[in-house]
């Protein structure tokens, strides 16, 4: 049972972490809670379904599985990047000089809008996410592990490694770190701050898209309100790890999911969120900026 709960937690954790990265990246640069980020993740899953529908109609899923899987991830990534950038342009950029809470309210408005737009356009009923990958399953130390779970963990880790490389090894990544530290200074030394912010939104949304498609594949079911719960959980994870800190988002995501998994399995399934929030409060009492928050300025992005 212990290993099984570990497996359960790690898979959920990689999804939390991917979404939490989007919150943390945007927060690091704009100090803004991008409340609509969960909806981007939800929309990623829906775009994935649409792509699968088109592919199936063309008969491509039969011919080339590898290409279809690539497209099922790639198209939602492109689309979500577009959604993220548009979101920033429409709802946040006009409010950049406004009081702190104003962008938060427009983010909440955007979240309500997007969630209900999807409901109107796609219907309120659950949508099936057809399963492309049937990778089988195997037993490890008494735990049931499916190939899909391994795939999800591997894909999530690959995305996170890619993000770290991007932030630390590229020009744009350096510009992001500079902007996160001091927006005015970055602009003075020639960084195009608006472009950096747009790129940040695009990257966060791409990660959310991957999470959305993976969740669709994993649970086989998508509806228009999955973004809300996932958004709150991922935001909690980001704060737990230290918001604004990339490694913190990973730590927070996995930690939160594991805590939930063990509490639900051993103690009480209905009080797992209470436990998760209590842990958050205790952590914040002793480390008011999260587990890794405020420790290294270099890692902020």
């Amino acid at each position: 049972m212990l290993t099984q709960q570990l497996v359960n937690g790690i898979v959920v954790g990689s999804v939390y972490a991917l979404i939490a990265l989007g919150y943390t990246l945007v927060y690091g640069i704009l100090q803004l809670i991008n409340f609509a980020h969960g909806e981007i993740y939800m929309m990623g899953a829906y775009v994935g379904i649409a792509v699968l529908g088109v592919l199936a109609a063309m008969g491509l899923t039969q011919q080339s599985l590898a290409l279809s899987i690539l497209l099922v991830f790639l198209v939602p990534m492109v689309y979500c990047a577009a959604y993220g950038v548009t979101l920033e342009r429409v709802a946040y950029r006009p409010l950049r000089q406004a009081p702190r809470l104003s962008p938060l309210i427009s983010a909440i408005g955007m979240s309500i809008f997007l969630q209900n737009y999807v409901q109107v356009a796609q219907g309120a009923r659950d949508k099936a996410f057809p399963n492309l990958l049937s990778l089988g399953s195997f037993e490890v130390m008494g735990a049931h592990v499916s190939g899909l779970q391994v795939f999800i963990l591997a894909a999530a880790l690959a995305m996170m490694a890619g993000l770290q490389l991007f932030i630390h090894r590229t020009r744009l990544g350096r510009a992001m770190r500079a902007t996160a530290q001091d927006r005015t200074m970055a602009a003075l030394v020639g960084v195009d701050v608006n472009r950096v912010i747009a790129v940040t939104f695009a990257i966060g949304s791409v990660l959310a898209a991957v999470a959305g498609v993976m969740v669709g594949m994993y649970y086989g079911l998508v509806n228009h309100y999955i973004g809300f719960v996932a958004g709150i959980k991922a935001f909690t994870a980001a704060v737990l790890g230290g918001i604004g800190n990339v490694t913190g988002a990973l730590v927070g995501g996995f930690l939160l999911a594991l805590l939930e998994s063990f509490w639900a399995g051993y103690v009480s399934a209905v009080y797992k969120d209470v436990f998760a929030f209590l842990v958050l409060v205790v952590v914040l009492i002793f480390r008011p900026e999260g587990i890794l928050g405020g420790s290294t300025e270099v890692d902020r992005a």
Binding site: I232, V270, D273, V274, A276, F277, V281, P288
Partner: peptide, 28 residues
């Protein structure tokens, strides 16, 4: 009392959690 030291958005998430805790306890 527990959130005296917290600022800004850390405070926001803790209060959010507090709201959820109350609701979950009422429901269970």
């Amino acid at each position: 009392i527990p959130v005296l030291r917290l600022r800004g958005d850390y405070l926001a998430i803790v209060t959010l959690g507090f709201g959820e805790i109350i609701r979950i306890v009422l429901n269970n």
